[in-house]
Simulated scan of single mutants.
Amino acid sequence: MSGKVEDEGPDPVDVHVGLAVKAYRLRAGMNQQSLGKAVKVTFQQIQKYEKGANRISASMLHRIAGVLDFHPGDVFPVHGVEAASPQAGFGAIKGSHELAESFSRMPAPNRALLLKVAREFERPDAA
Score class of each variant (00 low, 15 high):
residue 1 M to R: 02
residue 1 M to N: 03
residue 1 M to F: 08
residue 2 S to M: 10
residue 3 G to S: 08
residue 3 G to Y: 04
residue 4 K to I: 13
residue 4 K to C: 07
residue 5 V to H: 07
residue 5 V to M: 12
residue 6 E to F: 13
residue 7 D to H: 12
residue 8 E to D: 11
residue 9 G to I: 12
residue 12 P to Y: 08
residue 12 P to A: 02
residue 12 P to D: 03
residue 12 P to K: 06
residue 18 G to L: 11
residue 18 G to C: 13
residue 19 L to Y: 02
residue 20 A to S: 15
residue 21 V to N: 03
residue 23 A to Q: 08
residue 24 Y to N: 00
residue 25 R to H: 04
residue 26 L to Y: 08
residue 26 L to W: 04
residue 27 R to F: 00
residue 29 G to C: 14
residue 32 Q to N: 13
residue 32 Q to C: 12
residue 32 Q to H: 10
residue 33 Q to R: 15
residue 34 S to F: 05
residue 34 S to C: 07
residue 35 L to Q: 07
residue 36 G to M: 11
residue 37 K to C: 07
residue 38 A to P: 04
residue 40 K to V: 08
residue 41 V to R: 01
residue 41 V to T: 08
residue 42 T to A: 14
residue 43 F to E: 08
residue 44 Q to G: 15
residue 44 Q to L: 11
residue 46 I to W: 01
residue 46 I to A: 06
residue 46 I to M: 07
residue 47 Q to G: 14
residue 47 Q to L: 11
residue 48 K to Q: 15
residue 48 K to P: 12
residue 49 Y to T: 06
residue 50 E to K: 07
residue 50 E to T: 08
residue 53 A to R: 09
residue 54 N to A: 11
residue 55 R to G: 15
residue 56 I to H: 01
residue 58 A to C: 03
residue 58 A to S: 14
residue 60 M to R: 13
residue 61 L to M: 10
residue 63 R to S: 05
residue 65 A to S: 15
residue 66 G to Y: 05
residue 66 G to S: 06
residue 67 V to A: 01
residue 69 D to F: 07
residue 71 H to L: 09
residue 72 P to W: 03
residue 73 G to K: 14
residue 74 D to Q: 13
residue 74 D to E: 15
residue 76 F to T: 00
residue 76 F to V: 02
residue 77 P to M: 06
residue 77 P to F: 02
residue 78 V to H: 04
residue 78 V to E: 07
residue 79 H to D: 12
residue 81 V to A: 09
residue 84 A to C: 04
residue 86 P to S: 12
residue 87 Q to M: 09
residue 90 F to W: 03
residue 90 F to Y: 00
residue 92 A to M: 05
residue 92 A to Q: 02
residue 92 A to C: 14
residue 93 I to W: 04
residue 94 K to C: 05
residue 95 G to H: 01
residue 95 G to I: 00
residue 95 G to A: 01
residue 97 H to K: 09
residue 99 L to Y: 01
residue 100 A to H: 00
residue 106 M to V: 02
residue 106 M to F: 11
residue 106 M to P: 00
residue 107 P to H: 02
residue 110 N to P: 00
residue 110 N to M: 11
residue 110 N to V: 08
residue 111 R to D: 04
residue 111 R to T: 00
residue 112 A to M: 03
residue 112 A to C: 03
residue 114 L to S: 03
residue 115 L to K: 06
residue 116 K to S: 15
residue 116 K to L: 10
residue 118 A to Y: 02
residue 118 A to K: 05
residue 120 E to K: 15
residue 121 F to C: 10
residue 123 R to S: 10
residue 123 R to W: 04
residue 124 P to Q: 10
